[in-house]
Amino acid sequence: MEFKTERLLIRPFNDDDLQDVFHIYSNDTTCKYLLNDKWTHENKQKEFQRKLENNVLTKENSLSLAVVSGTKVIGDLAVWYTEMKDTVEIGYTFSQEASGKGFATEAVSSLVNKLFSEFKVHRIQANLDARNKASQRLCERIGMRKEAHFMQDYWSKGEWTDSIVYGMLSSDLN
């Protein structure tokens, strides 16, 4: 899957993206609310290899997409099917430098539209750390609704954290 938005190219990752992606995932602030720890020089090749391999969305395989501005990868979009029929979950991570410029909103809303129109999914959801206010605002900007707030339901990086579930149906786009 490859597509363009007004300012961005969204495409599968390629070998040349390693340094840009490492820059994103080696940042403490960026990784604070992610499930995984920040990347290190020792594990970056292994972590990046997963993104290269996840280049087609199937029921068995998640999809990882690079968000490119100019020639630089500024973000990462992920999509995977859940166990529920025709339901996908999305995830996204953007570099600190891309923050506040509308790139995440542009990329994620375009992805959501593609998932509904081309993949004919019934429902899209996002599960996030409740402390991640920027991610909550992004979900709301693209038309997702907050559906659940779970109290201390997830053990992450040495502490119990709350999680929030956002969701949307294709009818929410109208």
Score class of each variant (00 low, 15 high):
152 Q>Y: 02
162 D>M: 00
155 W>R: 08
88 V>M: 04
76 D>I: 05
135 S>M: 00
72 K>Q: 09
85 K>R: 15
5 T>D: 06
61 N>Y: 12
18 L>A: 03
164 I>D: 03
174 N>E: 08
160 W>M: 09
136 Q>L: 09
82 T>V: 07
40 T>Q: 10
60 E>A: 13
86 D>K: 15
132 N>T: 01
132 N>R: 04
107 A>W: 00
62 S>F: 08
103 F>K: 03
64 S>L: 07
96 Q>W: 03
58 T>K: 14
20 D>G: 10
117 S>M: 15
135 S>N: 06
46 K>G: 14
139 C>D: 04
34 L>D: 07
5 T>F: 05
57 L>Q: 12
122 H>F: 10
52 L>Y: 12
17 D>F: 01
157 K>M: 01
95 S>E: 00
124 I>G: 09
120 K>P: 10
156 S>W: 05
23 H>Y: 14
42 E>M: 09
140 E>T: 04
102 G>M: 01
67 V>S: 04
129 D>C: 05
73 V>G: 06
34 L>Y: 07
16 D>P: 04
115 L>R: 06
36 N>A: 12
122 H>V: 11
4 K>N: 15
12 P>L: 07
137 R>D: 08
98 A>G: 07
133 K>F: 09
83 E>T: 14
135 S>R: 05
16 D>E: 15
75 G>A: 06
118 E>W: 13
29 T>D: 10
92 Y>K: 09
77 L>T: 05
60 E>K: 14
76 D>P: 07
112 V>A: 15
5 T>L: 11
150 F>T: 05
86 D>E: 14
144 M>L: 09
105 T>M: 06
40 T>P: 01
151 M>W: 13
55 N>Q: 15
82 T>F: 06
145 R>Q: 13
72 K>Y: 01
47 E>G: 10
142 I>C: 03
82 T>P: 11
123 R>K: 15
63 L>S: 04
121 V>N: 08
10 I>K: 12
103 F>S: 03
167 G>S: 11
126 A>R: 06
14 N>C: 13
57 L>I: 06
160 W>E: 05
86 D>W: 11
64 S>G: 13
18 L>R: 12
62 S>A: 15
25 Y>T: 12
156 S>M: 12
19 Q>V: 08
170 S>P: 12
24 I>S: 01
139 C>I: 07
144 M>W: 00
14 N>Y: 13
141 R>D: 08
52 L>G: 11
98 A>T: 04
127 N>K: 15
43 N>P: 02
7 R>C: 02
16 D>T: 15
138 L>T: 02
48 F>Y: 11
115 L>V: 07
152 Q>D: 06
55 N>S: 15
90 I>T: 04
146 K>V: 10
41 H>Y: 13
6 E>P: 13
140 E>M: 07
157 K>N: 05
13 F>S: 03
77 L>P: 04
8 L>Q: 03
22 F>H: 13
22 F>L: 07
73 V>F: 04
138 L>M: 02
126 A>Y: 01
90 I>W: 03
58 T>L: 08
11 R>H: 10
145 R>V: 07
98 A>K: 07
17 D>S: 12
136 Q>R: 06
88 V>C: 10
83 E>Y: 14
167 G>E: 03
164 I>M: 06
169 L>H: 07
157 K>R: 10
155 W>I: 01
54 N>I: 00
66 A>G: 09
35 L>P: 12
26 S>T: 05
126 A>Q: 02
160 W>Q: 10
4 K>H: 14
47 E>C: 08
100 G>N: 08
82 T>I: 04
99 S>T: 01
52 L>T: 08
